[in-house]
């Protein structure tokens, strides 16, 4: 058992898989000599060399397109897009090529690649470098979408993503990079499509993702002191979505809250809300409530950014007000 931070867990997970599969390669901007602009790939160049850990020109379309081409030959690839906002630069490659290659070849061609990217706000980087864009990818048939909240989940879900025969977009949260957690020794491999009940409760279900998970847990601690027992679920993978765990919890508690960093319109919580309303409506004891960033570009001003993204306070206050 060792304590790692979320940032170190990224490199740990990649190294674990690169040792296991000598074919696995990674490419991206500033990932080799610099060790990644978020220092998530430190040490990988030294251990695996420049053929397997490759710095690229500033060419997001080429990073995704070339990684996809290599993956089509059976070489699993990790493509890093520095900021998740830049997914927009190569969205054609992701949406029209990577996501559809298996379908358009009748299952003949697999694209075993992972697109790793730094997602989310809290770093005062402004509207073009702070977005939570997991919902952009969730809506594309053919992609899988993963967003871990803890170091051990980073390793286990990254390993599962790399071993998956289909393309996975893997969102690492910028504001979680410094957070620490216990990581067991030995190989860690998790399962995609599984949510985690990270706190048991009976009065309401709070569903959260990535940075919103620790905030939901903090809110739940305070709610418990006030006599409200909240169950907290870390969604972990948006596609495939673990509807069984989500629906089971809502049936038990009768109340659902989603805590989302993405802008409100068409956020991932809207999809979960829709599924719950369709499947277990008669088990609900009150309206579903979504706690989200408003439908706005994220401000760079410290106070405004903090106001925009759901906080533990906002989660707590919203639950108290609506459960009352």
């Amino acid at each position: 058992m060792a304590e790692l931070n979320y940032r170190e867990a990224v490199a740990h997970g990649i190294a674990q898989e690169m040792r296991r599969d000598p074919l696995l390669v990674m490419l991206g901007e500033d990932i080799a000599d610099a060790g990644g602009v978020f220092k998530t790939t430190v040490g990988l160049l030294d251990e695996f060399g420049p053929e397997r850990v490759r710095d690229t020109p500033i060419s997001e379309q080429a990073i995704i397109g070339a990684a996809a081409g290599a993956a089509m030959t059976g070489i699993p690839t990790i493509a890093e897009i520095m900021f998740s906002d830049f997914i927009a630069v190569c969205f054609d490659m992701i949406v029209n090529e990577v996501a559809k290659a298996r379908y358009m070849t009748g299952g003949q061609i697999s694209v075993p690649m992972v697109i790793r990217t730094a997602n989310g706000g809290g770093s005062r980087f402004g509207a073009q470098h702070s977005q939570s864009v997991e919902n952009w990818c969730m809506m594309i048939p053919g992609l899988k979408v993963v967003a871990p909240s803890t170091p051990v989940d980073v390793i286990g879900l990254l390993a599962a993503s790399i071993r998956d025969p289909d393309p996975v977009v893997f969102f690492e949260h910028k504001s979680l990079f410094a957070t620490k957690g216990e990581v067991p020794d030995g190989e860690i491999v998790d399962t995609l499509g599984t949510a985690a009940v990270v706190r048991q409760g009976t009065d309401c279900t709070i569903v959260a993702l990535a940075l919103m998970v620790p905030r939901a847990l903090e809110a739940a601690d305070r709610l418990a002191e006030e006599g409200i027992s909240a169950e907290v679920i870390d969604v972990r993978t948006l596609v495939p979505l673990d509807t069984e765990t989500l629906l089971g919890s809502v049936v038990k508690t009768g109340r659902l809250y989603t805590v989302e960093e993405n802008p409100r319109l068409c956020g991932w919580g809207a999809e979960i809300t829709s599924i719950v309303a369709e499947e277990v409506f008669w088990d609900l004891d009150g309206p579903i409530v979504r706690i989200t960033t408003p439908h706005i570009p994220l401000p760079s001003a410290e106070a405004l950014e903090d106001l925009a993204i759901p906080s533990a306070d906002r989660v707590h206050d919203t639950v108290v007000k609506t459960m009352g």
Binding site: Q61, A62, I64, G65, A66, A67, A68, G69, A70, A71, M72, T73, G74, I75, T77, M93, E97
Partner: peptide, 9 residues
């Protein structure tokens, strides 16, 4: 771009 990746692989 895929052809570049295929060749690289």
């Amino acid at each position: 771009v895929h052809a570049v990746g295929l060749a690289w692989a």
